[in-house]
Design a protein around this nucleic acid. Structure first.
Lengths: 213, 213
DNA sequence: CGAATTTCATACCACGCAGTATATAAGAGT
DNA sequence: ACTCTTATATACTGCGTGGTATGAAATTCG
């Protein structure tokens, strides 16, 4: 057994594991994974080469393979990190008091990600659209991730309907998919070079049109 | 000079060019290009390999290179064909009598493409999102194509505003980008396995919410 | 110190990629 | 029939890819 795929905790990471035999690791896996995430985010899974990844992570290929397994495992861990850190606004947004509040939180959260220093577009969307050739396992993981988010939004919107946030003729599930469609479209536009002002206008337009409260 | 990149007219195509010296071509370039388009459409530019392309087109590599130049030129011609044939509904939709009619035409046209026999998703969107590494020229071409469509929709919606299709506080350009965002989101969802019924619901929801006539 | 163990650095491997050299086949003009 | 021209078929090239073998460096335990 060469590496433990579930354990990325580093010697020089936050809380140093007590004892360790052999030469200690000379890089911080968390920082390396963050760098890898950025590369995958910009280039997509297939577009990111191992050479590019190792250079951005500041480590050599054997170190990468020893620590993270292979390219697919690395991407998987980067994806986990992505949804844990970058998609916090999704979990936070679900707690907004009304359906329109949820929509606004999502739209503004997504907008903030586009205008920050991170790469443009959503990693999940990029990967879902781009990846056709390679292992189905990654597609499946992204799909199940998306399904889980969809379900959460649908349930939140069903509650919103019960609380009277929507006009009576509106289907919560349909509104959930409608909202995600706009968020995905926003990703595509950000990826194709739309300015923050244009995306801001898209958010404002969506909210102005939004039915209910 | 080995081939003329602007001339794909075939000997065995529709109207046979009168005289021809040398061995005649044993395939129909139009049909081959259609097959290539399908591959690019499914796999994206980088995802499509020359081996896959030649097999789908039913020709060998030298024939491909002699007739179409190289991979990039082939993609460019496939893209032209795509927008000429598959995006006819965009040009047709612009002639609808009201802004909402335009939106409905676009949404239903896009929906029809997703439910047909063609590959899922929009070639332009897929290419715009997926392609990060290779020649900027393709990105530029796709971008300029998108900009032209955007401008056409914006102008159409400005006319619509003058004709009173929108409530007074609505910005036509914003509505144009809003509509394209939904269409792009629809592409993403179709690409990630959404059913026709779900997409249909997305169309209905968008139209139900649409402001004005 | 010395043995065991783990990481790091360099070089390497097999493979698939876009693109091509070469030789042969199939027509048209004379 | 013979030449000229163009397309086809096969085989190949150089390169970048993901992944790895091997030996040296750095640490802990005895």
């Amino acid at each position: 057994m060469k590496f433990d795929p579930d354990t990325i905790v580093a010697p020089n990471s936050s809380h140093q594991g007590s004892s360790h035999r052999g030469r200690p690791r000379q890089f911080c896996p968390d920082a390396a994974l963050t760098a890898a995430l950025k590369v995958f985010w910009e280039r997509g899974y297939e577009g990111a080469s191992m050479a590019e990844l190792t250079e951005a992570m500041g480590i050599t290929k054997p170190s990468l393979y020893a620590c993270f397994g292979n390219k697919e495992a690395l991407f998987r861990k980067a994806l986990d990190l992505y949804e844990k850190e970058k998609l916090a606004y999704v979990r936070a947004g679900l707690t907004a008091p009304t359906a329109k509040g949820v929509a606004e939180a999502f739209l503004r959260g997504s907008l903030a990600m586009q205008t920050g220093n991170d790469p443009r577009g959503c990693l999940s969307v990029v990967s879902a659209v781009a990846c056709t050739n390679y292992a189905d396992s990654i597609r499946d993981e992204i799909t199940s991730l998306r399904l889980a988010t969809d379900r959460a939004i649908i349930e939140r919107f069903e509650r919103a309907r019960d609380e009277g946030d929507f006009p009576p003729d509106v289907d919560p599930a349909a509104m959930a998919h409608y909202l995600t469609a706009i968020l995905q479209g926003m990703t595509v536009q950000a990826r194709s070079g739309a300015t923050p002002a244009e995306l801001e206008r898209l958010v404002a337009t969506t909210l102005a049109i939004w039915p209910g409260r």
